[in-house]
Design a binder for these strands. Structure first.
Lengths: 236, 236
DNA sequence: ACAAAAGTGTTAAGTCTACACCCATGA
DNA sequence: TCATGGGTGTAGACTTAACACTTTTGT
């Protein structure tokens, strides 16, 4: 019984676009390669798939290694497969994107690796096709965020509505009316108001909210239209 | 300069979920494998990536081989990577889904291969994880079709509004009010009314429409909400 | 003349958008 | 007391959903 003779095997890599939000700006985490080829150039965090893991496991594994994080929001994005994307060897890379709370994990990151957060509009030239991956990830993040309650993954467990609005405004590069925004967010019934306030960003203080987890999970794939239709720019 | 030593290479396959619409029902195209392993079992049309092609090219190539079709709507779906998905050897498979006009190509299909159209609810047990791939493709098709004008790819160049409605109703397994449906479709301005009628499906006859191609291309990634929100079941 | 599918208009309900003022507090 | 950001209500425009009758024509 001859099986798959004569077919070429290739290396399969995973690259992670890791998004974080620092309260003001959306950023992504890049590392400076410590090995050849392209040593010292900035790149996405990546690695190769191992014989006994699937891609999700490999991506989680890579994320754990770089950030120390587990249980992070992680989603397969796209397989990049241009035969010359890596000039040294044929590698197909499956890109994943991750959303993490930048503040929570600030300490664990970037010590063992030359890792650094970059604002989305200050991303350096990356190796291979990584700039293209970032572009697609950004587009996909907007796409999903316009429809699904995904951006909570970028915030701490307790957050305020003005913080949340900031995040949406940052990602969609637009201004949203705060009355309409809070009405829409609260109408989802996904948030539970806490008795305490965050007093860091204002004198009056803003009430904290936490996610209603069961409802959040239930509604995750429901359609929720967060961004005013005219402003939901999904181009590039 | 040592590069990627010691990493395991794997076989990378492509599997295509080919959707077609016969005017009544949504179907997918399956083939009976003529080679081992799993000879004679039904499966998706697939193949391996070649050294000089990327995945899109490989998928087009496979589609061409099976159906004789080129220029078909084709979209990368997901990379399936369970280490044991193929019990004989480790293979990562990137699934693609395709939309074709079943009638137009009926003749070209299925002669050289044991290919056959199956209604979506009569799909046999497929090899490996292909049933899972079909399930995901179906979900993705609904998802995209609820938002984007994608289903025209399943129809002939000239089609009637009742045909189109039939298609939407089939895919979403729901009934749509025809007055509201035609108003919504026509409000997109994507269709151009033809002088002739299709008289096959009714005595009165229904006017043909064709796509306004420039507008279609322009609006492809715009948000158009075709399905009444309550009915847009995107679960499974 | 009748059966079968095509085509069309209106009204009520709901949603979305734009907009402005008061509140609480720390400095 | 004042400057800063937080919080809330309403009215008009628009969109959606529900609904029924007339038209055409082949048999």
């Amino acid at each position: 019984m001859v099986k798959y003779n004569g077919q070429t095997k290739v290396l399969v890599a995973i690259d992670c676009i890791i998004f974080g939000f620092d309260g003001n700006e959306l950023k992504i985490l890049l590392i400076q390669r410590s090995f050849s080829p392209e040593k010292f150039k900035w790149s996405l965090m990546g690695g190769f798939i191992q014989p006994n893991e699937d891609l999700d496991q490999a991506a989680n594994h890579i994320l754990k290694t770089l950030t120390g994080l587990e249980g992070v929001y992680l989603e397969q994005l796209y397989a990049f497969s241009n035969p010359n994307r890596d000039p040294f060897e044929r590698i197909i890379s499956v890109a994943y994107f991750a959303l993490i709370d930048i503040l929570k994990y600030e300490t664990q990151i970037s010590n063992n690796y030359h890792a650094q957060w970059f604002s989305l509009n200050q991303i350096p030239d990356l190796i291979f096709d990584h700039n293209q991956m970032v572009k697609l990830a950004k587009k996909q993040l907007r796409y999903k965020a316009a429809l699904h309650p995904i951006l909570f993954e970028l915030l701490p467990g307790k957050f305020t509505i003005p913080q949340l609005q900031n995040l949406y405004e940052g990602i969609f590069e637009t201004q949203i009316d705060k009355r309409n925004f809070s009405r829409k967010i609260l109408s989802t019934k996904l948030l539970i108001k806490q008795p305490e306030k965050d007093k860091l960003n204002s004198k009056k203080g803003a009430f904290y909210y936490v996610l209603d987890m069961p409802k959040y999970i239930e509604n995750f794939q429901a359609f929720l239209y967060f961004i005013p239709k005219q402003q939901a720019s999904l181009q590039d």
